[in-house]
């Protein structure tokens, strides 16, 4: 565990020392606060104001995370520092987990100022607390999941540029399939193999969609189904990243 903490701390401080960390961090904080402010001005409902702020954080997290995770492993490979890491007595999974922890903490630190929004709303209204906290639980789970994916794409890319583009495409696809795929799947006709397959495909796409799972949290529901989606996805991508780091040994 000591290794993971040391690696995580290094990654976290690296964000504060790098221009990417600053630029992305300030843009992120600035943008979600602007969006919250406009929502705040338009609505009289306390919960709607807070939910608007949280969904702004989510939207910009999806845009910011690819930039924050792109270099995690791709840059190490490009600059050769991976050789320094992997010849020290640390295991591959420790490196992956350490980088993951450092990155998640940075994103959460960037998202933390949005709690001020909650305080601001509380000054002027009486929000119902359930949906507020469930919204934040969803946000944290979403960050866990997106960072693990970003880390994975960094682990399989030779350059940060490729990693950031792959992450973007995948994030956006996972976000919009929930909107594109029709709400109700086509009716099953027992005789028709294709419509049967389509039914399962629709169900699968719906299950894979981020927005589908995230929406429940903002309505105040913490379903085990959604929690399992984010946590298992996170574990899955961390595992794949470890395999990708190990894969240097298979060539």
């Amino acid at each position: 565990m000591g290794h993971v903490l040391a690696l995580g701390k290094r990654e976290l401080t690296a964000y504060f020392l790098s221009p990417v960390g600053y630029v992305v961090g300030f843009l992120f904080i600035g943008l979600y606060n602007v969006f919250f402010f406009f929502g705040f001005m338009r609505t009289t409902d306390a919960n709607e104001a807070i939910a608007g702020g949280t969904s702004a954080v989510m939207t910009f997290a999806i845009l910011a995370i690819p930039f924050l995770t792109m270099g995690l492993l791709a840059d190490e490979k490009r600059s050769g520092t991976i050789e320094m890491l992997m010849t020290a007595p640390v295991a591959d999974w420790e490196v992956v987990l350490g980088k993951y922890v450092g990155s998640v903490i940075f994103v959460l630190v960037m998202a933390a100022p949005s709690l001020v929004q909650v305080l601001a709303v509380k000054l002027y209204g009486m929000p119902e607390w359930g949906p507020v906290w469930s919204g934040y639980v969803g946000l944290v789970l979403l960050v866990f999941f997106l960072v693990s994916m970003g880390l994975f794409f960094s682990s399989i890319s030779k350059s940060a540029l490729v990693a950031v583009m792959t992450s973007f495409v995948v994030f956006i696809v996972l976000l919009i399939i929930g909107i594109v795929v029709p709400q109700s799947p086509p009716a099953i006709e027992a005789s028709n193999v294709f419509s049967n397959a389509a039914h399962y495909l629709f169900a699968l796409l719906k299950y894979a969609s981020i927005s589908e799972h995230y929406a429940n949290f903002s309505w105040g529901m913490v379903n085990s189904r959604d929690v399992v989606y984010f946590i298992s996805g996170t574990v899955f991508f961390l595992f794949l990243s470890t395999l990708a780091v190990e894969s240097r040994k298979w060539k």
Binding site: A6, K9, R10, S79, G80, E83, A88
Partner: peptide, 22 residues
Amino acid sequence: PENVPLYTEMRVREYLSFRAKI
């Protein structure tokens, strides 16, 4: 290693302390 890959954003002492930890 050849060409000594290092974390260029870190300070010398900070880097050595990180390496000592891992």
